[in-house]
């Protein structure tokens, strides 16, 4: 991030833009936005290179390999798109830069270890929940799905409860 970085956009403007994108996804694809499903597929394909039989025999991942390449899936295309969207937006705003972002009291090492551990929990939680903040909370929430709000409530309650114990990472 450089000194000329532009400020973030108004959250309601960004939220409305995100909402219209979600609306467009429902109209065009017949389904909402998502992210964690593609991450699970990429993980499965990576492991498949090392241990094909055990991945294909797995009841969760096996079905993804039955119709050919698991990466030939709209969620994977969407995930790749979101990477480029983030890249182009940050570049245009002068916010792009290779960093390990952390609070003023955190070491890069502790931040990286926490990122790995937190990522693993998010990976497990998303699969158990059948989705993440994109596919379950946002996309399901727009259509008032009960499970989406159960997930949102549990996610925020847990994060607020644990936040004081990891304050050093962020503040």
């Amino acid at each position: 991030m450089n000194a000329n970085a532009k400020p973030f956009w108004n959250p309601y403007l960004a939220g409305a833009g995100l909402g219209l994108t979600l609306l467009l996804s429902y109209v065009v694809l017949g389904t909402g936005l998502g992210a964690s499903g593609a991450i699970a597929r990429i993980a499965a394909v990576s492991m498949h290179a090392a241990a094909p039989e055990s991945v294909e025999a797995n009841p969760v991942m096996g079905p993804w390999f039955e119709d050919g390449n698991p990466l030939r899936h709209y969620l994977v295309a969407m995930l790749v798109g979101s990477l480029f969207g983030g890249f182009l937006s940050s570049l245009a705003a002068g916010r792009a830069g290779i960093v390990v972002e952390r609070g003023p009291r955190a070491s890069a090492q502790s931040r990286v270890i926490a990122a790995l551990l937190g990522g693993a929990l998010v990976g497990i939680g998303a699969r158990l929940s059948l989705g993440c903040t994109s596919g379950l909370a946002l996309s399901g929430g727009a259509l008032l799905q009960a499970g989406s709000f159960v997930f949102v409530g549990a996610t925020f309650a847990a994060a607020f409860a644990v936040a004081p114990f990891v304050r050093r990472l962020w503040r």
């Binding site: 936005l33 992210a35 964690s36 991450i39 995930l79 979101s82 990477l83 969207g85 983030g86 937006s89 940050s90 972002e101 931040r111 926490a114 990122a115 790995l116 551990l117 937190g118 990522g119 693993a120 929990l121 998010v122 990976g123 497990i124 939680g125 998303a126 699969r127 158990l128 929940s129 059948l130 993440c132 903040t133 994109s134 379950l136 499970g147 159960v150 997930f151 949102v152 409530g153 549990a154 996610t155 925020f156 309650a157 847990a158 994060a159 644990v162 936040a163 990891v166 990472l169 962020w170």
Partner: peptide
């Protein structure tokens, strides 16, 4: 989704991201 959301929420505040925002 209550259990998964709890695990996800802990991961969110420890790791700093959710899957979509991590891509951005």
């Amino acid at each position: 989704q209550a259990i998964g959301g709890t695990v996800f929420g802990i991961g969110f505040v420890v790791g700093g991201w959710c899957p979509g925002t991590a891509m951005a």
